[in-house]
Simulated assay, not measured.
Amino acid sequence: MALSKMDNLYRQVILDHSAHPHHHGKLDDSTNEIELKNPTCGDVLQLDVKVDDNKITDIAFSGYGCTISQASASMMTDAVMDKTVDQAEDMVEAFSDMILGEKSNTDILEDSAVLKGVSQFPARIKCATLAWKALHKALNKE
């Protein structure tokens, strides 16, 4: 019974982030930006990042997509705010490992760790990782 209640809590966190995303919008003064698309399901994500002194000082996303992609983007923006670029890259790697079912340091992922269950649904992995891939590409100006 306890596992069922925990699953419900995780679902609620995901639904809340999707319905009321954090850092949603655009930045006028971004230093790094990128648009990525998930051709599998049609998700589109525009990510704007402001990096000052090797630290993420502001971040915003816009676009549209499924509940998982929007929630993941919201959680990711919360998690990486005020982190150094290296810390953010470590988080990108940890999130990717977690979603692929590999051993990962989920402690650094904050709320994003609740998306671990997505690893059981291969069709949704690209939805969950879209924002994180965008962050990696934006930080590396790919």
Results as ranks from 00 to 15, higher is better:
133 K>T: 12
132 W>N: 10
104 S>T: 02
93 E>K: 14
121 F>I: 15
104 S>W: 02
120 Q>A: 15
124 R>H: 11
134 A>R: 07
110 E>Q: 14
97 D>S: 14
94 A>H: 03
130 L>Q: 12
97 D>G: 05
128 A>P: 06
102 E>C: 05
115 L>Q: 04
113 A>V: 10
107 D>E: 14
98 M>Q: 12
110 E>M: 09
109 L>P: 13
104 S>P: 09
125 I>E: 10
108 I>C: 08
132 W>Q: 12
111 D>Y: 00
117 G>P: 14
121 F>K: 07
133 K>G: 09
93 E>V: 13
100 L>R: 09
107 D>F: 00
98 M>I: 03
114 V>T: 14
116 K>M: 06
127 C>Q: 07
121 F>E: 07
113 A>E: 11
99 I>F: 08
130 L>M: 10
135 L>N: 07
124 R>G: 13
112 S>I: 04
131 A>H: 07
133 K>V: 04
128 A>L: 02
109 L>Q: 07
99 I>E: 05
128 A>V: 10
111 D>N: 14
107 D>K: 15
112 S>N: 14
113 A>C: 08
111 D>K: 04
114 V>M: 01
113 A>G: 06
103 K>Y: 02
98 M>Y: 09
99 I>Q: 06
116 K>A: 15
107 D>G: 03
125 I>C: 00
105 N>R: 07
120 Q>T: 15
125 I>M: 04
110 E>Y: 01
110 E>V: 06
133 K>F: 01
96 S>W: 04
93 E>W: 01
109 L>K: 07
115 L>K: 03
107 D>Y: 03
99 I>G: 10
118 V>Y: 02
123 A>N: 06
120 Q>W: 04
134 A>G: 15
118 V>M: 03
104 S>A: 13
106 T>Q: 12
109 L>Y: 02
113 A>Y: 06
129 T>C: 02
133 K>P: 03
